[in-house]
């Protein structure tokens, strides 16, 4: 059994890669956990696409404000310095390339950076896309947070997505429970390995030809903040 990071550990790694001053959108689901590990002494500004910059943590139970929610429709708070705005402005921030980082979940990420995360294409399913496609193409850096393998042990890193696409060539980096991958013109480059994972093992698990880029970046990445 090779080393696998828990969701919380993964969230911690991603949080450590986000610099002070960054404008960040954390997608619905697991990426939301990244907020829990952003260093309290750094000012990092969270964007929620339903219309706020400067989003803070969940309120206490008696303090829930139905007018103050995040994109996952959960109660949140506003930090000092927060701003509210309407939907066209909110997505203009995204589409206009003003967000530094967004962190998204994925069904599949392809070698060329294509992302599939909004639909499995299953017949009869009720479709929903929300802001996924805008997020995928809008932020300067699109990080994916995901398990490397599905429950059926199929690789989520693929040569080409078989699920309906969310965006083309949009992913810059994939944080998985086994390793961190950068999307490069030559394919996936392994940036950091966790525990006893090796590039050879990951190549076997994914069935992809991988570039070993661990020596270049492993040190500064693990140091984090």
């Amino acid at each position: 059994m090779t080393t696998k990071l828990s969701r919380a550990e993964l969230a911690q790694r991603i949080a450590a890669a986000i610099p002070e001053g960054a404008f960040v959108n954390l997608g619905i689901g697991a990426p939301t956990m990244v907020a829990n590990y952003l260093p309290a002494d750094l000012e990092i500004i969270l964007h929620t696409e339903n219309g706020m910059l400067g989003m803070g943590p969940a309120p206490l139970a008696g303090e829930v404000d139905p007018d103050l929610i995040n994109a996952g429709k959960q109660a949140v708070t506003a930090l000092d310095g927060a701003a509210y705005f309407h939907q066209a402005d909110s997505f203009g921030m995204m589409r206009g390339g003003h967000l530094d980082v967004c962190v998204l979940g994925a069904f599949q990420v392809a070698e060329n950076g294509d992302l599939a995360n909004w639909s499995t294409g299953a017949p009869g399913a009720v479709p929903a896309v929300g802001g996924a496609m805008d997020l995928a193409i809008g932020a300067k850096e699109v990080y994916v947070m995901t398990d490397l393998l599905t429950k059926q042990n199929e690789s989520k890193l693929v040569a080409a997505c078989s699920y309906p696409l969310t965006g083309i060539g949009c992913v810059s980096r994939v944080y998985t429970d086994h390793a961190v991958f950068d999307v490069t013109p030559e394919g996936f480059a392994v940036r950091e390995l966790y525990g006893d994972n090796t590039v050879e093992l990951l190549a076997t698990l994914t069935g992809l030809r991988l570039i070993d880029a661990t020596t270049a970046s492993a040190f500064d990445e693990t140091k984090g903040h």
């Binding site: 309407h86 939907q87 997505f91 995204m94 589409r95 479709p127 896309v129 496609m133």
Partner: peptide, 13 residues
């Protein structure tokens, strides 16, 4: 149903 990405929906409006 006409499904529209949220940002396109907002900008079209």
């Amino acid at each position: 149903l006409e499904l529209v990405p949220q940002g396109n929906l907002a900008e079209r409006i």
